[in-house]
Design a protein around this nucleic acid. Structure first.
Lengths: 182, 182
DNA sequence: GATAGAACTAAGCGCCCGCTTAGGTCAACG
DNA sequence: CGTTGACCTAAGCGGGCGCTTAGTTCTATC
């Protein structure tokens, strides 16, 4: 059911998807959606929450993968880029359908999203402290690094068979340049 | 009418907007939409076409603003970033609602979008030829430079009063680092 | 003042929307 | 074997959807 909804929301957007679409994709009757979720919006929230947790785990894992600031940042941008391509449909829902959540649910998710930023800011500061990075605007640079990864969901299509490893590698290399790695 | 539709589509997405929403925002009756446009999708196409032309003009103008490759790239990323913030609602429709267009209309727009990429690739090649930039993957780097600007529409909110000049300036500075400007 | 044409609306058609209700099916358990 | 409870569906309610039609209002031109 969740999988079916992810596919539908990613393809047509939340507003453009009917609960009947989701049910058909899941091979169930229209009413089956409401056995598991109180509303269409609750279904989106469940997807968004799961997706954000998975993406955050991915980023934190990469942060912990190395002690060297440059290797660490490289790993983070590589992993986060890769995640957005390997989970393209889920990632698209996560990144594009925030506005469709209720106020309460959106506030929950937004507070989760601040953690992405904080982790990335931490990685940049590590490099500055070690004298390896040269960055004036830490917050802005962290935002730009995340942008580089997140924007992949706008155009990357797994079906087109592009080399996702090469793209993630390029993004990671560019990231090191962006922080003035020496 | 176009303005009203831009606002509505940017706020709720194409699928989540009804033609009645648009009409109310324009201060007209629901039928008035169909006096000017054949269908809801035709309305989106008109917006998308106008938006893409404006954005492309902005990028080309910046390209022509200087002969020096570094100054040129800096101007392009600054202008393109600035455009996405100054025209945040239009830009959001331009970047996020491609999938809602009919096949024929989408093909039109996609061919327009390839020009963005070509202009950016040209700017990067200029710098390589002049010995100022050090870039391995020209296409990938051009894509990343555009990503940096385009992803602004995902989170930038004019109402929040952030300093759009400073953000555009940062993006432009980061762009020069990304191409290994020496 | 008469006329043409563009801009607009009131009303509504047929369809699909989110969601509810009442009831059916079936494995697990005493 | 009877009961429970989780899972599911057929049917449908009230309402909003994209879009059409028939007719009105306004403005420019002679």
């Amino acid at each position: 059911m969740l999988d079916a909804a992810v596919d539908a929301f990613a393809e047509r957007g939340f507003g453009g998807t009917s609960t009947r679409d989701v049910a058909v994709r899941a091979g169930r009757s229209p009413a089956a959606v409401y056995v598991h979720y109180d509303s269409k919006e609750a279904l989106l929230y469940a997807i968004s929450l799961e997706g954000h947790m998975a993406a955050l785990d991915c980023l934190k894992l990469a942060y912990a993968s190395s002690e060297d600031p440059a290797a660490r940042l490289h790993a983070m941008v590589f992993a986060f880029s890769d995640w957005h391509m390997e989970n393209a449909r889920l990632a698209r829902v996560v990144q594009y359908e925030l506005h469709a959540l209720s106020k309460v649910h959106r506030a929950d998710i937004v507070s989760l999203r601040r953690r992405f930023h904080r982790v990335m800011v931490g990685a940049v500061r590590d490099g500055i402290r070690a004298g390896q990075f040269q960055v004036d605007d830490v917050n802005g640079t962290a935002r730009a690094l995340l942008s580089l990864c997140i924007d992949l969901v706008r155009w990357f299509d797994p079906a087109r068979g592009r080399n996702s490893r090469a793209i993630a590698q390029l993004n990671a290399d560019l990231a090191l340049r962006m922080v003035g790695d020496v």
